[in-house]
């Protein structure tokens, strides 16, 4: 084995390792639960993290009818225009998140737990996958800085 080939092997190995290390730093696409919703109609503008609504957590405890009939939630992510004012008046989330059925509104960070800067979106949605650009966290944020 000539020294040149040896050097080349070494070189490619180093490149491989560097590329692997580089790939580790590349942000990974979100792998949240199916039907998790990030709601960021107003949160970012108000200096809060976006709210995350996990369907799976709620459907274990309630049937769809409870929120989508009794509480009037439309079948549209971000389409209900929920504000904290409505919640403290007992509407939408506030129907349960009032300290009686579930935790009360002073536990801000339990719901407002999303990564800042994410747009309102539906995780795992077929519609989003087929027609809207795939959502990639962090990447858009990185290019602006």
């Amino acid at each position: 084995m000539s020294s040149k080939i040896k050097r080349n092997v070494l070189k490619s190995m180093i490149i491989g390792v560097l590329a692997y290390m580089g790939a580790l730093g590349v942000p990974q696409p979100a792998q949240a639960e199916y039907a998790d919703i990030v709601i960021n109609n107003y949160a970012d503008a108000a200096g809060m993290r976006p709210a995350v609504f996990p369907h799976w957590f709620h459907r274990i405890r309630f049937r769809c009818k409870v929120c989508h009939t009794d509480l009037g939630f439309a079948f549209k992510a971000g389409g209900n225009k929920i504000t904290m004012a409505k919640i403290i008046d007992g509407k939408f989330c506030g129907a349960c998140h009032n300290g009686e059925i579930s935790w009360s509104v002073e536990n801000c960070a339990m719901c407002h737990s999303g990564i800042p800067g994410q747009p309102t979106h539906f995780h795992g949605s077929t519609v989003q996958r087929l027609i809207a650009p795939a959502y990639k966290p962090l990447q858009t944020k990185d290019t602006t800085k």
Partner: peptide
């Protein structure tokens, strides 16, 4: 905390239920 939409820097994220 690892799902890519919750902020791991938010303390309350870690007290949310694991699916």
């Amino acid at each position: 905390a690892e799902d890519g939409i919750h902020d791991p820097e938010n303390e309350a994220t870690h007290s949310l239920q694991h699916p």
